[in-house]
Amino acid sequence: MAFVVEEKIGEENARKYKLNKVEKDIRNKISKKRLPFRCYPEISIELSWRIDRELGAWLINYGSFGGFWDHCNLDFNAYRLYYQGKMFDAVITYGAWFGDFRMINGQKRRIHKLYALEPRSSGKLSKSDIFKILQDALNAENENVLLIDALDYNIDYVGGFLIDGYRFEDNLEQIINPFRNQHGLASLSRDEIDHLWCISKELNEIFLIKVGSDGSNDLFTLTHYNHGYYEYHANIVLKQISNKTVDGINEISYKIKKIEILGDRSEAPTQGKIKRLIRKMFRSTCESGLEGFSPNLIDEKFKLSLISHLFEESEFFIKLKQWIVKLQNLIARRKNPRLSGF
């Protein structure tokens, strides 16, 4: 069987799955703010659900919340998933108010994004297992739904200046074009920004946007929002030190060449923290399953080697090598006393 939508849960199912206790548990966790939600919805348990009786799983929408974020309404839905005796809470959104649709393999798909999942795994169930069940349940109502994992970092377009409600016109005018001009690159028009790609963590409001290339140097801007307002920017130059294909996977290694923090530096992290953030964003980026990305970005694994300077040239390394040579000589003398001149 598969998931089907049932308009009525029915008293028998309510008793079988103890839905009164489920509702009480949801209300209790929300009152104590123990769920991974940015803001907490008003509880409204739907009378309908999606259920796969053969699998022994069901999905109920129990609330929604949203708001006007930086010129754009976002709507989030809160769900309770039941599977193999385990309960999971999920936050899923459709994206911006106008709907988020993509053409994939010639088919128009509606994009849903999974923003929060608690717990992310349980027993033998991995995050990917739970993700697949959620995808199947959502497809019970509309087979054109594509669920994207936005729990960590994901690659996306800066399409129409918007990534889930955040607008990038100011970023374009105040950050991107001056940065490009510094490297002798032409300014981008508002249409051209649609071709930029971005590694994003939308719910935490962090965006790393590739804005151009200058020879072997790739130019990025890191933007951090806080409740819809810019908190800090950083212009970043990454130098490609290797770009090779291993077993069909393109692996790119970068060297940090320059980080320039803009705006209120008191609100910005140290350069070391920015380096660690970039490393995590690259390593956490997973396959998006969307068409249209340039070949070197989709279906590929990224490695980021963060090197602030050549370790081999450092004074510490030179002294370390001298100490190792002395230690090796001492060990050799102890093994062969005649080498010591006795």
Rank of each mutant, 00 (worst) to 15 (best):
V4I: 13
V4E: 14
E7Q: 11
I9K: 11
I9D: 10
E11T: 10
A14I: 14
N20P: 01
E23Y: 06
E23Q: 15
K24H: 07
I30N: 02
R34L: 11
L35Y: 12
I43G: 10
I45L: 14
I45E: 06
E46Y: 07
S48E: 13
R50C: 09
I51P: 03
L59T: 04
I60E: 00
G67F: 00
C72P: 01
L74H: 03
D75F: 08
A78I: 03
Y79R: 00
Y83K: 03
T93C: 05
T93H: 11
F101V: 06
G106K: 00
K108M: 08
E118F: 04
P119I: 00
S121A: 09
G123K: 02
L125E: 07
S126H: 06
K127Y: 05
D136T: 04
D136V: 01
V145Q: 03
G160L: 12
Y166D: 06
E173Y: 03
E173C: 01
P178M: 08
F179K: 10
A186C: 10
E202N: 12
K210R: 14
G212L: 01
G215Y: 08
S216E: 07
F220R: 00
N226Q: 12
H227W: 10
K239E: 09
Q240N: 11
S242V: 02
T245Y: 10
T245D: 12
V246Q: 04
D247F: 10
G248M: 06
I249T: 12
I252P: 01
K255A: 07
E267R: 12
T270L: 14
T270M: 14
G272S: 13
L277D: 02
K280L: 06
S284M: 13
S284Q: 15
C286W: 02
L290R: 15
E291K: 08
P295L: 05
N296Q: 09
L297Y: 10
D299G: 06
L304N: 05
L306V: 15
L306P: 07
S308N: 14
L310H: 13
E312G: 01
E313I: 10
I318N: 08
L320E: 11
I324A: 05
K326G: 07
L327V: 11
R334G: 03
N336E: 12
R338G: 01
L339D: 07
L339P: 11
G341K: 05
